[in-house]
């Protein structure tokens, strides 16, 4: 059964995008006609789709198609850039995150982000993970310990680092650092995880472990993952959104879209006619 989402009438130049979703799928994050401008340059044009809850959605497309920019809109990190303008809506559980009275740091807490290159803080492993809870006011040593342990266990890092919690996080391997950074994000209790090419800096073995971790995480969290690697998208994701020059071209079930894309553009990209 297809669900069509149309943009509100007061947004000019909108096109209705038909989204195919199996019946009864719950949407964690809903984008409605999201448009983004960096100064005079438009990076996103009326993107609209729904990110299904507790599934992995891959965002694919050629370079400069706006994938990373889209991600940064979803946790309002683009607010930090002075010349950014956003139109449209992003709804988290029905509430717009761009509402006038929205609390930005609360949005970012609930929508976590993992970056392309692991960026652990120059602190100990423990302090990296405890950074978020401390912000939220958790002070008790036992509570902090529990948070840290829980987060590290969720990323399967606890056994490796439990003996060196006080060592510098920079001493870990890249794969460990990436998992540490995810644990850091988990420690503040998000619902959604945005990941921007998270395995691109990792070697193949670490990438494999990472993809296994993704499957586990998807049981509790909604994951939106940007990747330029089609095989990875096929292996890991449940749904795929294909972005081209700032527009959403197609969205759908991974297997269906990758084997039988509806749009010509999608087919060209998947078969490698352009990078």
């Amino acid at each position: 059964m297809a669900t069509t989402m149309t943009a509100p009438d007061n947004v000019p130049g909108t096109t209705a995008v038909t989204v195919e979703l199996p019946a009864g799928v719950e949407i964690a994050l809903e984008l409605r006609a999201l448009s983004l401008w960096y100064g005079a340059r438009q990076a996103l044009d009326a993107v609209g789709f729904g990110v299904p809850a507790r599934k992995i959605t891959a965002l694919i497309g050629p370079s400069a198609s706006g994938k990373s920019s889209l991600l940064r809109c979803l946790n309002r990190l683009n607010d930090e850039l002075p010349e950014c303008r956003v139109e449209g809506e992003v709804l988290l559980g029905g509430t717009s995150i761009y509402a006038k009275d929205a609390i930005v740091h609360e949005v970012r807490r609930r929508i976590g982000m993992v970056f392309q290159k692991p960026n652990p803080f120059p602190l100990s492993v423990y302090e990296n993970v405890a950074y978020g809870p401390r912000l939220l006011g958790v002070k008790g040593r036992r509570e902090l310990d529990a948070s840290v342990e829980g987060a590290l266990k969720a990323v399967r890092l606890w056994d490796e680092v439990s003996a060196r919690l006080d060592d510098s996080a920079l001493a870990l391997s890249l794969g460990q650092q990436q998992r540490l950074v995810i644990a850091r994000a988990l420690a503040v209790g998000p619902e959604i995880l945005l990941m921007d090419e998270p395995a691109s800096a990792l070697d193949p073995a670490a990438t494999l472990r990472f993809e296994e971790l993704l499957h586990e995480l998807a049981q509790r969290y909604t994951v939106l993952l940007v990747t330029h690697n089609m095989q990875q998208a096929a292996r890991v994701s449940d749904y795929v959104a294909f972005l081209h020059q700032g527009r959403l071209v197609e969205f759908g079930d991974t297997d269906a879209l990758l084997t039988n894309p509806r749009e010509r553009l999608t087919e060209d990209y998947i078969t490698g006619r352009y990078a």
Partner: peptide, 17 residues
């Protein structure tokens, strides 16, 4: 490195924090 600022903001910290 600017990645540290981005990482902290992404966790829900304010600029001042």
């Amino acid at each position: 490195p600017p990645g540290l600022l981005a990482g902290s903001l992404a966790l829900g910290a304010t600029r001042g924090e």
